[in-house]
């Protein structure tokens, strides 16, 4: 029994092995001078830059700018893509007629569209949000439509045989049935939005945001700051995924059951 408890608790700590392993390799790389120390500062230097950046430094501000843009982009994408996805998914013919276009643009790297969006929306904040929305919207659209199309036939029949109108079947059954897939879409959408926002912040005449911070630190050869911004971006991506998973779990408690 004791052994089992010990094994179980040590299993929970397993992820830390990778973390410490990475830090160890980093230190070895630093001390052995395999990598130029200017390019690879010691981990504690990066950690200190991260700490300073978040307590009084500019990193916190840039972090929030990226968070706001990512959420704004996901919100815009959701508002447009969820209703559209429902329409697409509820008609096989409409879906088939736009499937190729959606799939094509979904496969197009959003970064290839930066110049186009710059021409249309200028170099302001909106451009970054819209280009990220575009990428996220296609992902969400696809998932919502898929969720609607794959609503369990039996549940629809069950509602119909109880006397549900078409509208009620749509609202009470098909919409609910598509929710788990919609949340998958939102989770993938927010991840993609973050990627696009960070890239946009690097290249489209930016003055703030995590992408800008990484880029500027690199230009200034301030490596600890650059690693700090990279870690902040990583933590943001990881945190967003967990946040959306948690929302998903409480909203669609029945998913996968």
């Amino acid at each position: 029994m004791n052994r089992i408890v010990r094994f179980a608790s040590s299993d929970r700590l397993l992820p830390l092995v990778g973390v410490f392993g990475l830090i160890a390799i980093w230190y070895i790389g630093y001390w052995s001078r395999i990598v130029d120390p200017v390019l690879l500062p010691p981990p504690h230097a990066a950690l200190k830059a991260l700490w300073n950046g978040f307590t009084g430094g500019r990193l916190l501000y840039d972090f929030w700018q990226t968070v706001i843009r990512t959420f704004a982009a996901t919100a815009v994408a959701g508002i447009i893509a969820i209703p559209l996805g429902i329409v697409l998914g509820s008609s096989e013919r409409i879906y088939r007629s736009v499937e190729f276009v959606v799939d094509f643009f979904r496969s197009t790297p959003a970064s290839a569209l930066f110049p186009l969006f710059l021409v249309i929306f200028g170099v302001g904040n909106a451009t970054k949000i819209y280009v990220a929305s575009f990428g996220a919207a296609l992902v969400i659209l696809f998932n919502v439509a898929y969720g609607v199309m794959n609503a369990r036939k039996t549940r629809i029949l069950a509602a119909r045989v109880m006397g549900a109108s078409r509208w009620r079947v749509m609202k009470d059954v098909i919409l609910m049935e598509s929710l788990p897939q919609t949340f998958v879409g939102l989770r993938n959408g927010v991840s993609l939005a973050l990627v696009i926002v960070v890239v946009a912040e690097m290249f489209i005449g930016s003055v703030d945001g995590l992408g800008f911070r990484v880029f500027e630190a690199q230009q200034l050869f301030d490596m600890p700051d650059m690693y700090a911004a990279i870690f902040a971006a990583g933590a943001l991506g990881y945190g967003l995924n967990i946040l959306f998973l948690m929302i998903e779990k409480s909203f669609v408690h029945w998913s996968g059951k």
Partner: peptide
């Protein structure tokens, strides 16, 4: 239905499932 797993609405409690027939 034979397949109760796919006939009941998992987003509603059992009570709400039964009640829904009356709501309709």
């Amino acid at each position: 239905f034979q397949n109760y797993r796919e006939a009941l609405f998992p987003w509603m409690t059992a009570f709400a499932n039964v009640e829904y027939a009356l709501t309709l």
